[in-house]
Amino acid sequence: MATPTRLTDAELLSELEPRAEAYLNRHMDMVEMWYPHDYVPYGDGRDFESEPWTPDQPTLTGVARTAFFVNLMTEDNLPSYHREIYAMFGKKDSAWMTWVHRWTAEEGRHSIVLRDYLVLTRQEDPKKLEDGRMSVMEEGYEKDGKNTLRGMAYVSFQELATRVAHRNTGRYSKDPVADRIMERISKDENLHMIFYRDMLNDAKHVDPNGVVEAVADEVIGFQMPGAGMPDYNRMAMQIAIAGIYDLRVHHDDIVWPILRKLGIFEMEGLDAAAEKRRQELADFMAALDGMATQFEEKRAAKAAKAAAREQQLVS
C-alpha cells in the first residue's frame, strides 16, 4: 500500500471541514449556557477604598491560592490564544472560524468568574492579580511555528490538562464556592478538549504520519501555556507537591487517555520518519512514568519525615 501523502495545512483544513462543522454542531447541542454572576458571592464584597486588602483576609491555604493564581493568569492570556488559533484555522466564513469565535467567547467567562471570586472573597491581593494580568499579557503566547496538526495536538492535551488542573484545584481548596466554580469551568474545558481530540482523531485517517509526528512532538515538548509567567517554576512545584498537578497526573490523566483514544501505538502503515517518532514517544512515556514514580516516592518520604518530626514535638 502506498504511503499516505503529507498534506499542507490548507489541504488538511479543507479535507476536515465537514467534520469540524459536525463537531461544532455537536458542541452546541451539548454545551450549557451559564453566567459568572450565578457562581460568585457578590454579597461578600466590600469596598477596597474603605477596607483595603490585607494578607490575613484569605481563607484559602497558600498552595490553593497559588493554584488559583496560576489558573487565572493562564486564562487571562486568552487574546494571545485566540490570535494563534485564529491563525491556525485561518479559513474565513467556515465552520473553523465559527468554532474559534465560540471557543473564545466560552473561554472568556473563565477569567471573569475566577477574578470575581478571588477579588470579592479577598482570597488574593487585587493589585497582585492586575499586575500579573499585565505581565502575562505583555509576554503573550506564541505557538512557535507549529503547523495545524501540531496545533491540534497541543490543544488536545492542553485543554485536558487545564480541565484536570482546574478540577483538582477546586477540590483542594476545600471551599464549596471555589469547587463549584472550578467544576463549572472544567465542564467547558472538557467539551473543548473533545472537539480538538476528535478532530485530531479524524486527521489521522487523512495524514496518519503527520498526526503521529505531531503528537510525539507535543507530548515530548509539552508545556502549559502559563509556563512563561514570572516565578512559574516555583509555583508549579508547589502545585505538584500538593498533588494538584504533578508528573503522575500528567502521565496518567492527561497524556495516556488521549494516546489511547487516538490509538497511536496501534496505527499501521506509517513511514520510517513517523515510526521513528513513535518509538521516541514510547521511550519518553516510559521515562515519564519513571520520573513520576520517583517524584511520588520523594514526596512520600518528605511527608513521612515531616509527620515524624511533628509527632516528636507532640510527645
Rank of each mutant, 00 (worst) to 15 (best):
K127P: 00
L313R: 15
E84F: 05
Y42P: 04
G43C: 05
V155M: 12
Q238N: 09
A242P: 00
E84W: 09
E15H: 13
D246N: 15
L313K: 15
M88F: 04
M182I: 03
L270Y: 00
P176V: 10
I244H: 00
K127Y: 09
L200F: 07
A303R: 13
K305R: 14
A165M: 12
I241K: 15
L200D: 02
N168S: 08
Y86R: 15
T98I: 10
N25L: 11
E138G: 06
G263Q: 01
A165N: 10
L114W: 12
Q279W: 09
M267F: 04
G263E: 01
V314Q: 13
R180D: 15
A236N: 13
H166K: 06
M1I: 08
G290E: 11
F89N: 10
M291K: 15
A95R: 06
N25D: 08
H82S: 07
N233L: 12
H110N: 04
R234C: 03
T8I: 03
G221Q: 14
G170C: 04
W96H: 11
M237Y: 07
R46E: 12
D9G: 08
A301N: 13
I264K: 04
P55H: 08
A227L: 01
Y117I: 01
P55M: 09
V40Y: 07
L160M: 11
E159F: 02
G145K: 05
E280M: 08
K302P: 03
G228N: 14
R309M: 11
F295I: 07
A95E: 06
N168A: 14
L78R: 11
G226P: 00
F89W: 15
A165G: 08
L60R: 09
P225T: 15
R133L: 05
M88I: 06
M237Q: 13
R83L: 10
Y86K: 14
G170E: 04
V255G: 00
V70Q: 09
V136M: 00
W53M: 05
P36I: 02
R184E: 09
R309F: 07
W53R: 05
R171W: 06
A178P: 07
H166N: 09
A20D: 03
V211R: 06
G226R: 00
V119H: 02
S50M: 06
R171S: 13
A282E: 14
M137P: 00
T54P: 03
V314H: 08
G221R: 13
F222K: 04
T59F: 05
G269A: 07
D188R: 09
F157P: 01
L259Y: 02
D198V: 06
M182R: 11
G145Y: 02
L13C: 03
P79A: 03
V215K: 05
N25Y: 02
L120A: 10
